[in-house]
Design a protein around this nucleic acid. Sequence first.
DNA 1: CATGAATGAGGCTTCATTCAT
DNA 2: TATGAATGAAGCCTCATTCAT
Lengths: 194, 194, 194, 194
Amino acid sequence: MEENKRDRLLEAATTVFASKGYHQTTVRDITDYAGVAVGTFYLYFPSKAACFMALLDRLYSTVVQSVAEARRGREGPREKLAASIRAGLEAFVAQRDLARIALIQAAGADTSFDRRLAEIHSSMASLVKEDLDEALQAGLIPPQDTRITSRALVGATYEVVHSWLRGGDVGDLLAAADDVVAFSLRGVGLTEGL
Amino acid sequence: MEENKRDRLLEAATTVFASKGYHQTTVRDITDYAGVAVGTFYLYFPSKAACFMALLDRLYSTVVQSVAEARRGREGPREKLAASIRAGLEAFVAQRDLARIALIQAAGADTSFDRRLAEIHSSMASLVKEDLDEALQAGLIPPQDTRITSRALVGATYEVVHSWLRGGDVGDLLAAADDVVAFSLRGVGLTEGL
Amino acid sequence: MEENKRDRLLEAATTVFASKGYHQTTVRDITDYAGVAVGTFYLYFPSKAACFMALLDRLYSTVVQSVAEARRGREGPREKLAASIRAGLEAFVAQRDLARIALIQAAGADTSFDRRLAEIHSSMASLVKEDLDEALQAGLIPPQDTRITSRALVGATYEVVHSWLRGGDVGDLLAAADDVVAFSLRGVGLTEGL
Amino acid sequence: MEENKRDRLLEAATTVFASKGYHQTTVRDITDYAGVAVGTFYLYFPSKAACFMALLDRLYSTVVQSVAEARRGREGPREKLAASIRAGLEAFVAQRDLARIALIQAAGADTSFDRRLAEIHSSMASLVKEDLDEALQAGLIPPQDTRITSRALVGATYEVVHSWLRGGDVGDLLAAADDVVAFSLRGVGLTEGL
DNA sequence: CATGAATGAGGCTTCATTCAT
DNA sequence: TATGAATGAAGCCTCATTCAT
């Protein structure tokens, strides 16, 4: 029951940050939720910002790991991309609170979060770009600036997650996966067999 | 010369918010930049948040207006969508600071901004969805959940703008427009003639 | 009555710092005493430390000014030194609280105060040293390292003030002046005529 | 090798307090330096303040002991005073860190330290005063309020040590001893034979 | 309309001290 | 004895907002 206390704090932080946002959350909120004293927080994190950042990284590594695993054994850009998108969506679904933090709360909260976020976005896009470049060389997709279309592909996915997080039209994110995948693959020009 | 003082404040706010973010910006920063006293700010805005919200609306109406105008005279979903995306990108380019505010700074700053942003995103997606539904009925595009794909289309565009704002791979946003449009139209299945 | 508010704060700070010491005094203590809100303090001082430093400077300039004035019209090292010491003592008597702050509270409170204090001590000693060097060249005093004896002279005076501040043996500081002056002048070797 | 652990802590405390001052030093700093756990500190000292106080006493007893020893076998106020001052200076030189603590750091750190310091100063002055009173009765020195001049003598010595500690003009404290002794003896009127 | 001095609630963080192991 | 994780009181400072002039 008494797992690692740092983890308990991280979980408390996840919950509270996800529901109230970074600036509306006080360190006190987090420690209250975790059932520890304020000082304890600073035993495990140098600052509120560092804790938030740790959350960002945690989601990121989860997603990256899921995606990497899903790609293993897949052949060809088509399969890899589809698997990647699906794995990404699944990772978000599995950690809705972390997703809220990364996709909604982080952006405008602090310049440093923003930078980190930008890095994450970029690395996601880079992964996609590799597949696209491969497809491009193999003549599987039409000529295109893959720096742009890889971004677009990532953005398409993000926005759907976004909408799902906000409880909009996207009821079941996993059910929406097919449409997202179809849209994305068609978008880059991988049309055959759809 | 002495234009509207409210506008002067809005412009100052745009500049400062865009560069420092909502929470890192003080009302004092804005009034200093505008060259007026702090009290004056509250003559034109009930609160800092309201001022920020006004900026959000300003960008929104600009974009909507540009898009609406661009669509005038266009025929068919294909033309309309392409024109819409291009007009949107142009509007962002024309108001880079406002774009920064809406796409980067607003998100995690405050729950109320978030809601407004969600509305804006939704209305953008709705516009697109209308075109898609029309195309769907006309049999121009394959079966798809247009609630999802409209979001995806908007997200693809947003992310490219995002990347441009951050000074990433997207050097010239207008030059990227072709790729974004192509990606989006292919994504929804409007492939013919590309 | 409503003099300068900064001065009111400085006076409040003087009183509170003098009685409780730097670290035992909170900014709240000062503003309460001054009858203003906490925020007001920061309208006039960038920090608690800066306020304390201002007090140090205030005492220093008062003393220096008194001494300089007292020396005007005095002839010869003997007269000048005697007048300087007396003027110094009088300045301390006139501002007992500031004296407490500078001589008792400042030293160990913060490294930066210490440095400032060291500067002040040094400049006092320098003034004395000039007189001594003059006397030395005129053959009025025996050979001696005036860097050392000037310090000693200043220290002799300081310690008596110190003792007076603590309410020790030195009942009336001005009454003690004769003894301090006699001790100091004899100490440097200006004996004739005592 | 494993000397007394309390002593190890005291030594660590001496080093750290001397360099950072009382308030800037944390108990953690001390235990880190001593290579023990925080809790251990409280096995040997009831509080941080008590530890500091112990240091003050340690210096005091060292100085008193040195002075007492130096006076043994000296005859007459003149010899005794000179030996006392020299012994005092030597004691400070031998324990520069403790000297820093007592002369610089202790002052404004806490009211209780202040009181203790005042006692120490007083007892030093008392020792001197006895010699002076003896000299006065023997007609060796001119009429003077020995409560004042004994303070002045102590202050002269202190200030020179102070300056030496701060690395000012006083390069070698022992080399300066002659001047300090000469100044002090002349100051009280013990002039013959200088 | 305009000013800007004044307000004071509230947040982050530190650190001396305790106590279960 | 020794440890060091945990505590929580307390302090400095910021800044949105008000209001008398």
